[in-house]
Computed example of a mutant assay.
Amino acid sequence: MTLLIKICGLTTPAAVEATVAAGADMAGFVVFPPSPRHVDLARGRALVAPAKGRLQVVALTVDADDALLDDIVAALDPDWLQLHGKETPERVAAVKARLGRPVMKALGIAEAADLAAVPAYAAVADRILFDARPPEDATRPGGLGRAFDWRLLDSLDPGLATMLSGGLDPTNVAEALRITRAPAVDVSSGVERAPGDKDPDKIVDFVRAARAAAATAPAAAGPRA
């Protein structure tokens, strides 16, 4: 199974073009004002345009209400919706049914107990994204550039459609794939010069490193497709 690679938090045309040129599979756009990677819908529409048809467009939201989700779908026409907040399984199912788009649900992981929620979400989401659980005092969700203990995923059903995120970069993605056998990886801050400022060279390096790791250990990208 071919490894899926997602570059998230794109904010400039140059970053979008670098993502396409590097051979990534998914481009993520954040619609969440507290994030340094937030793009408003007018700007997002312009950024998404050159990516459409060349890779899969993912719109990331955090506890968005129906009105905002409608606006996001109208403006960006994403291939995927990524729910990165405290959305319940019932909310995930409702979003998917209402909008008719594949839904990716992010779950924060810091200890084995955090995996208890996986079955309920896996029953309704098209893919589960594992990110580092933010600190209790964090003002934003997500891994915030930190990795979690990848060995925690050893107990997962290998048939689950998953994606690994949190603290990945060009130097550690091969090790992450070796340990987790993840079928998909997601990077944001690990390919940046500064928060929200993507480095095209790092995007290329990340994609190259991930593809090389998958090619030298084909089984690593297969079990959890």
Rank of each mutant, 00 (worst) to 15 (best):
T2K: 14
L3K: 09
I5W: 00
I7Q: 02
T11L: 01
P13K: 11
A15M: 04
A18M: 05
A18P: 11
A18N: 04
A24V: 02
G28E: 02
V31L: 12
P34N: 11
P34H: 10
S35L: 11
R37C: 12
H38M: 01
H38V: 03
D40I: 08
A42M: 04
A42C: 00
G44L: 11
G44C: 08
R45F: 01
R45W: 00
R45S: 15
A46H: 12
L47S: 05
P50K: 07
K52C: 13
G53M: 08
Q56P: 01
A59E: 04
T61F: 11
T61V: 15
D70E: 15
D71W: 01
V73S: 06
A75N: 11
D77C: 09
D79S: 06
W80F: 15
L81I: 10
H84P: 04
K86F: 12
K86T: 15
E87L: 03
T88H: 03
T88Q: 07
P89Q: 11
R91P: 07
V95C: 03
V95G: 03
A97K: 14
A97Q: 14
G100W: 04
G100D: 10
G100M: 02
P102E: 07
V103R: 06
V103S: 08
K105E: 09
E111R: 15
D114F: 09
V118G: 08
A120R: 14
A122M: 05
V124S: 02
V124F: 09
I128G: 08
L129Q: 01
D131A: 11
D137A: 14
T139Y: 12
R140W: 01
R140E: 14
P141V: 00
L144H: 11
R146T: 05
D149C: 08
R151G: 13
L152N: 12
D154Y: 12
D157Y: 00
A161G: 04
T162E: 01
M163D: 04
G166Y: 04
G167E: 09
D169W: 04
V173K: 10
A176M: 04
I179L: 14
T180M: 06
A182H: 04
P183E: 08
P183C: 14
D186Y: 03
D186R: 07
S189E: 06
D197R: 15
D199P: 03
V204M: 05
F206I: 07
F206W: 08
R208F: 10
A209H: 08
A209G: 08
A209D: 06
R211I: 06
A212D: 14
A215C: 06
T216W: 10
A217I: 12
A221Y: 08
G222Y: 05
A225L: 14
